[in-house]
């Protein structure tokens, strides 16, 4: 039980997907305009990452490993995750339209998102058990959500700032992101044993 908490804590803070692993930077910079859209994106990522962690675990240990095809896991994962997301999207559209309207528009964006694939691959690399995998996927996505929502707040403030002309727009965004990443590097010294 403690192991799972440690994995989740590390996934949210010390090994934050955006700020220390640098996965999922594209949605991080693209969809962090408003805190509300950022939250929607974060929720969609949480949803998909948790489910895909479970699905890829099953594919790896039930299909790839017995056949000795571990080296093809990246391709298999992309295939499975993309299909899974498409399937979930259609399912939600039909049966849970309210959830679809809040998540649905973000789902196609993250079908082959590097953060989602990254979570699956890290799970295999760390040899996590099934429960650990799902917990890791969920917690990583929570960390992602936190990062993107916090950054959306920073961006909202930044609209009123007046940087030098050369830094306006995207450059200052990258600088702000790097400052946030530096702040998160403070967590990296934490060790649990």
């Amino acid at each position: 039980m403690t192991d799972i908490f440690l994995i989740m804590f590390a996934a949210i803070l010390t090994e934050n997907f955006i700020f220390s692993r640098f996965y999922g930077i594209c949605p991080f910079l693209g969809v962090s305009d408003k805190p509300s859209t950022a939250l929607g994106m974060g929720m969609a990522v949480t949803f998909v990452m948790t489910l895909s962690s479970a699905a890829t675990y099953a594919v790896y240990y039930l299909l790839l490993e017995p056949l000795g095809l571990e080296y093809l896991k990246t391709i298999a994962f992309i295939l499975v995750i993309a299909s899974l997301v498409q399937f979930i999207e259609m399912f939600l559209k039909k049966y849970i339209p309210t959830l679809y309207s809040s998540l649905g528009i973000y789902l196609p964006l993250i079908t082959t998102n590097c953060a989602v694939l990254g979570a699956a691959l890290v799970n295999i690399q760390e040899q996590n058990s099934f429960v650990e995998s799902v917990a890791f996927g969920f917690a990583s996505a929570l960390g992602f959500t936190m990062a993107i929502v916090v950054f959306a707040g920073v961006r909202a403030k930044m609209q009123f700032s007046d940087p030098p002309k050369a830094f306006r727009g995207f450059p200052i965004l990258l600088i702000a992101a790097s400052l946030a990443a530096m702040a998160f590097s403070g967590f990296s010294g934490m060790k649990f044993s």
Binding site: V31, T37, M41, Y106, P108, L109
Partner: peptide
Amino acid sequence: ANCGGCGYAGCSA
């Protein structure tokens, strides 16, 4: 292209 330049999550949004 789903670039997000418009401020929405993607072209379909």
